[in-house]
């Protein structure tokens, strides 16, 4: 058990992390190269950076947007992302592993805050699952992948939260193994599923802008239908 845990936290984690970074880089290249080509062939090469940045900023801090539609869902999903991003990066157990493995020290959040954030994220996953099942409009279009990614997120969060608790049904090591393994799977899955919106999100507006540009190398002369 101990050796297996060491393997999962060491080499397997490194592999998962490399796949994550390489996968995200690949996605970035797949935006930037076609994006650059689209920009090169555009008749109008001006890009409204100000408007794009403003729109992006308004969705990063969507105070005005959240209240406009699907209020409960919006608040839940917004809070859910806090825990999802902050806990894996800044929880003291994780930063200690980073320090041990690479020598890089990262600021940590207190365990109490990490617990609260984790609970919010776990609760958020359940509520998002519920919303996908019961919302009259969402459930008509929901796909297997939408549930799948939520479960992928749920397992490492629950196992991580449960590992050190007295009510943990498994042993600490076993739960920790579940946590590390599922965490590694989640990292690997990010670039290949809709979770890759973490890298697409800042660029989708730019892509829409470039996509609406007309091409220089095309003759647009209209012939009657």
């Amino acid at each position: 058990m101990d050796a297996l845990l060491k393997f999962c936290e060491g080499p397997l984690f490194r592999l998962a992390f490399v796949i994550l970074i390489a996968g995200l880089l690949r996605q970035a290249v797949l935006i930037f190269v076609p994006g650059f080509i689209a920009w090169r062939r555009a008749r109008d090469r001006t890009i409204p950076w100000g408007r794009l940045g403003r729109d992006l900023g308004m969705w990063m801090f969507p105070v005005a947007h959240v209240v406009r539609s699907r209020q409960i869902f919006s608040v839940i999903s917004y809070l859910f992302h806090f825990g999802l991003i902050l806990v894996p990066l800044f929880y003291s157990g994780h930063t200690a592993l980073w320090a041990a493995g690479t020598g890089i020290t990262i600021p940590t959040i207190s365990d109490g805050i990490a617990d609260i954030l984790s609970l919010i994220t776990i609760g958020g996953v359940f509520l998002l699952l519920l919303s996908r099942m019961i919302h009259p409009l969402v459930r008509r279009f929901v796909k297997f992948e939408d549930y799948f990614v939520l479960v992928l997120i749920l397992i490492p969060f629950i196992s991580g939260y449960a590992a050190g608790r007295p009510w943990n049904p498994l042993s600490y090591e076993a739960m920790r193994l579940v946590h590390v393994l599922s965490g590694n799977i989640l990292l690997i899955a990010i670039p290949f599923t809709k979770l890759s919106h973490c890298i697409f999100f800042p660029f989708s507006r730019l892509c829409a802008e470039l996509g609406s540009k007309l091409a220089l190398d095309v003759n647009y002369e209209y012939r009657a239908p």
Binding site: I31, S69, R70, F73, S74, S77, R132, H135, L137, V138, F141, V142, K143, D146, K194, S196, H197, F200, F201, F203, S204, C207
Partner: peptide, 11 residues
């Protein structure tokens, strides 16, 4: 990009 971005929130 859209093929891999939409999370189906229906807003």
């Amino acid at each position: 990009v859209y093929a891999q971005t939409c999370t189906g929130c229906m807003r």
